[in-house]
Design a protein around this nucleic acid. Structure first.
Lengths: 250, 250
DNA sequence: TCATATTCGTTCATTTTTGTTCAAAATCAT
DNA sequence: ATGATTTTGAACAAAAATGAACGAATATGA
């Protein structure tokens, strides 16, 4: 069977059943597991499907993308720990900036008793904040449909209208030399601005982000405090030389 | 069974029965208790459900509640007519402001083919606009929890960063002498600003709003075009002396 | 209030899935 | 046919998901 035949067969069955296991596909094509894996990798690169643990599924189009947050909540437990620790740093009456993203999202349930005022650029956060009855301001801006984050010049301008006691930002990587980074330059600018208008900035990152370097730089390590999890003693030494490092639940 | 399959199965059943016990889910999925617990934890982190002792239930979604309320709203048919008529006034490529509120909400389904860019201060509108794939900007501001509308100084400032071809505003009353009015002065200011930054302004109001006078004045009748429904000939004469009046579907 | 029964979160071992490497087979160009 | 390139399948270590066990927390009913 030709490679392209396999590919179209996979996609055909996928549109029919919405998701397939690797085993399904093996039975379907009589190819080996390795080959199927390669197929899936390739088809995913072409945006024709999305790989999931155990198989593949159809990519989410416009619909639902936003309301159903498809971000698989990986390292959830760590994120919750980090979030909880971050909240413990708050004082009554603080005005804070809450960045869009899954880690900062986990802070919201703990905010209830803190009597803070929140400014956020995450549309996904808005609903949760409302449900907890937390006074909330939204930055303006263009909606990035993939993540429900507000970005662009308007967002940056909006932020400049506030002053924050503390900013809590999510990052995609932190690295001794290359600093805090994130894939989207637009988001990086937004984060930078939120940091500039805050007395203190906290970068939230689980351990998988260590030594990651993404495309767009947000700031140097020394420009913000780092809140993370499970840092080796060696790594702790490296980063705490440069900035305040808080390790949530050791 | 794939993890995502289980997840969507759980959510599907949950929307059907409003709440489920862990046992229900085990019978449904043939997975172990541990696995189900993990699923629930993850789905809760994504705000898709709320865990309760013994199972899970649907989260209370304020924004969604608003949307549902809007659907069961009064004079829906009139509002749809008015909205549809309003959309018919649009040209390809127009940049428009869409005010928060039930009547303007009805415009969204018809916008799909118009290739417009939308700026809105209604959080309830955002999800709908995204679902229809319409490029959307959100104004900044404070969230009025009752209605999901953005208001306040930041909203007004946000609006000044745009220029609209057309603004579509909802009003609570229109009156020959007292003009267009709405109960909340903050919202009135927002509407006034949206009108000021638009080449043309359209006030959308069903017939029950005629001769209503609310607390806060938005503008004089002559300051904006009026789109309404079922106007008596006498009333039509009165208002069309002052401004452009469009009667949707007579 | 207390005792009992569920349910919950956590930990750990097991199973499954994944990415990578490497050699064999197939395909291609000359 | 020969050598070069690509595709394939197998092996294996790393990562992720799963299920069972168990003490802690919570609900239930007397």
């Amino acid at each position: 069977m030709l490679t392209t035949e396999r590919h179209s067969l996979i996609l055909e069955q996928l549109t029919k059943y919405k998701n397939l296991t690797i085993k399904d596909i093996i039975e379907l094509t009589y190819a080996s597991e390795s080959t199927i894996r390669r197929d899936l990798t390739e088809l995913e690169a072409q945006d024709k499907l999305v790989r999931i643990h155990g198989g593949a599924t159809l990519p989410k189009r416009k619909l639902q993308e936003f309301s159903i947050k498809e971000k698989s909540t990986k390292n959830l437990h760590e994120k919750v720990q980090i979030a909880q620790y971050a909240v413990s740093l708050l004082n009554k009456g603080d005005c804070i900036f809450l960045d869009a993203g899954t880690t900062t999202m986990q802070m919201i349930p703990f905010l209830k008793d803190k009597e803070v005022v929140v400014v956020t650029n995450g549309l996904t956060h808005v609903e949760a904040l409302m449900n907890y009855g937390i006074p909330t301001y939204v930055t303006g801006g263009y909606i990035k449909t993939k993540t429900g984050a507000l970005i662009g010049a308007q967002t940056i301008q909006s932020i400049s209208n506030y002053r924050f006691d503390k900013s809590f930002l999510g990052v995609n990587g932190f690295h001794k030399q290359f600093g805090y980074t994130t894939p989207d330059p637009e988001e990086a600018s937004t984060k930078r601005q939120a940091s500039a208008y805050a007395l203190e900035t906290f970068m939230l990152a689980d351990q998988t982000k260590r030594n990651n370097v993404s495309f767009a730089k947000i700031a140097d390590i020394s420009d913000a405090a780092l809140i993370t999890c499970h840092l080796s003693e060696e790594a702790y030494k490296i980063f705490s030389d440069l900035t305040t490092v808080k390790v949530a639940n050791q």
